[in-house]
């Protein structure tokens, strides 16, 4: 098992975004505010099935749910 984050069910992108968030939060106040605005994400998404749009969900919630699900599978 080479990567601890992979074992806990994170994708590489998720891992990167968590690492980036930690770096942003540890900046000094003035720089932190500018940097945290670069980390905002308010996307919504919907799955499509047979030409019909499904339910609209927030991407952030769905990603978190997927991560926990993957974690429960691997561990």
């Amino acid at each position: 098992m080479a990567f601890a984050w992979k074992a806990s069910g994170l994708t590489y992108n998720k891992y990167l975004s968590v690492a980036a968030r930690v770096v942003r939060r540890s900046l000094k106040d003035d720089k932190r505010l500018a940097a945290e605005r670069r980390g905002e994400m308010e996307l919504k998404f919907a799955k499509w099935n047979n030409g019909k749009q499904g339910e609209v969900k927030s991407v952030a919630d769905a990603n978190a749910a997927a991560a926990t699900e993957a974690a429960s599978h691997t561990s």
Partner: peptide, 30 residues
């Protein structure tokens, strides 16, 4: 519409951030 598997909204309100791209890439890889 039959070819569409995922759709995202909320794109392009402001300058896109890397966090946006990451979240989309995450969903696509799922």
């Amino acid at each position: 519409s039959r070819n569409i598997v995922l759709s995202f909204s909320g794109v392009g309100k402001d300058i896109p951030t890397f966090a946006d791209a990451q979240a989309i890439a995450d969903q696509v890889s799922l």
